[in-house]
Design a protein around this nucleic acid. Structure first.
Length: 483
DNA sequence: GTAGGGTTAG
């Protein structure tokens, strides 16, 4: 079980109070080092474009020149420091390498001045550039002003909306595209599939898949997107069938399938696919290794996990923070918490995920005291705390059966308005049941806006352990009535 | 030419 702590829990007599969970330090479950999901996406985009900027350094210098020219309406710079007026090719390159919204606006202004009309190619690049900086309205303005559009214009605009979560607009735009007589291609359908997957809109996604088959748009990228869409909608069989039918595969398609299996609790299948991938000569990347390590953790496949660890040490991604965290989790889940600690200690960089993996590892292995001590260290180093750190801490309190520390943590959870979080709520129910405080557990379960299997199971087991079988059965009925 | 598949912890 998720929060099961097998070895005998060491009891703690007296503990100094927990460090406070200052509101500014508490994040959403996806948070990392104080950054929100949105800013994480932005960071990924920024990394991507830094790479682009490096490879297009020459053009980047031009961007600065064009921006300066754009800020000089009199055009006085044009004859001196600013470069000569650029053509569509150069402007599009600049737009692709722009690292800031101001840069995009600058190039847009220069394009209007130098080209007269923007043309399909520059407009398409402008749509993408504005979308990249979340300026979907500006992208739409460019799109609306286009006298002519290509399939790239439609797809780029649809992607802009999709990335902002405007799935209705994606659908409307696709229908407008069809009505205008334009035809989509594989990448248009990939965009639609991603939108359907994100919305868990299975029936629409299946129709898109039919269009792909009818239009013979299948290729490695499209089929990977199809497989991922089915997995997002919980249809692992269709995802697997799509993967099996693929004529050619690459590391991304293999990784997609491994991740799909892991995320749906089929660690054994994930490891079989991983073995097949390696035996076919594909080199796993850090994403693949993380998923394979997760499968090892799930299957308690310590030997396989150790082999992977050996491979990780030899590879460049041995310093990858996610691979390190996955190794910590793998060892902890395979009851080798001190190996987990050794990996943790040797990591050159750590973040919230790494610290949380180790705290949870200690808690699940029955070393609640070590988990709490590590948390103190984490706070001393000013590493941000997120919902899963709190879940790990509650798990530690439960493993020690320390009602005092758990209640103190509960008070901080309330202070930080985190009691409605599903994972935290479920773990609180588990914690109070584990400590024999069934009144509290029942009260929290009652107040939870959403309940998952962990919360129900914790409460039912709690009643069972007290011999309150009637209450346990009543709750079981209620659970089946609600699920 | 441009738009594009997997994004990781309990």
């Amino acid at each position: 079980m998720l929060l099961c702590c097998s070895p005998s829990p060491p009891r703690v007599q007296a503990f100094s109070p927990l460090p406070p969970l200052h509101p500014s330090c508490v994040l959403s479950s996806s948070g990392e080092q104080g950054r929100s999901k949105k800013s994480k996406q932005q960071r990924v985009k920024a990394q991507f474009f830094h790479a682009k900027v490096r490879s297009l350094r020459a053009q980047s210098h031009q961007v600065d020149g064009y921006c300066s020219a754009a800020e000089d309406p009199g055009g006085n710079l044009a004859g001196s420091a600013a470069p000569s007026l650029p053509d569509a090719e150069a402007l599009a390159s600049c737009l692709r390498s722009c690292g800031s919204l101001a840069g995009v606006r600058g190039v847009h202004a220069v394009a209007l001045r130098s080209l007269g009309s923007l043309g399909i190619f520059v407009s398409n690049n402008l749509i993408s550039a504005y979308s990249r900086f979340d300026e979907v309205l500006d992208a739409r303005k460019v799109f609306d002003e286009m006298p002519e559009r290509s399939v790239v214009s439609w797809t780029a605009m649809m992607n802009g909306y999709r990335e902002r979560g405007h799935h209705g607009e994606v659908r409307r735009l696709f229908l407008d595209m069809v009505a205008s007589g334009a035809q989509g291609n594989g990448l248009t359908f990939v965009c639609l599939l991603k939108s359907c997957g994100q919305r868990r809109h299975a029936s629409l996604g299946r129709q898109v898949h039919c269009c792909i088959v009818k239009g013979a748009w299948s290729n490695m990228i499209v089929d990977s997107a199809v497989a991922h869409f089915y997995a997002q909608c919980g249809d692992v069989t269709s995802a697997s069938a799509t993967f099996d039918r693929m004529v050619s595969r690459d590391v991304v398609s293999w990784t997609t399938m491994i991740t799909v299996y892991v995320q749906h609790g089929h660690g054994d299948k994930a490891l079989r696919v991983f073995s097949a991938m390696v035996s076919e000569g594909f080199h796993p990347n850090e994403f693949t290794v993380c998923s394979a390590l997760k499968a090892c953790a799930e299957e308690k496949a310590l030997r396989y996990g150790k082999q992977l660890h050996g491979a990780v040490v030899k590879k460049l991604y041995k310093e990858d923070i996610h691979v390190g965290s996955a190794l910590v989790t793998m060892y902890a889940r395979c009851s080798e918490v001190f190996d987990a600690q050794a990996v943790f200690d040797r990591m050159p960089r750590r973040n919230t995920i790494t610290w949380t993996s180790m705290i949870s590892g200690y808690a699940q292995s029955g070393y609640g005291e070590k988990a709490i001590m590590l948390f103190r260290k984490m706070k001393m180093r000013r590493v941000f705390v997120n919902n899963l750190t709190i879940v790990g801490l509650l798990s530690a309190c439960g493993s020690m059966q320390s009602v005092y520390l758990g209640k103190e943590l509960h008070a901080q959870i309330i202070k930080n308005s985190l009691e409605d979080n599903l994972q935290i709520g479920s773990t609180l129910v588990w914690f109070y049941s584990k400590c024999g405080q069934h009144t509290y557990a029942a009260r929290i379960l009652e107040a939870m806006p959403d309940r998952d299997a962990v919360a129900w199971t914790a409460m039912i087991s709690g009643y069972n352990s007290l011999g309150h079988n009637v209450e346990a059965l009543k709750l079981l009925d209620e659970m089946y009535g609600m699920v």
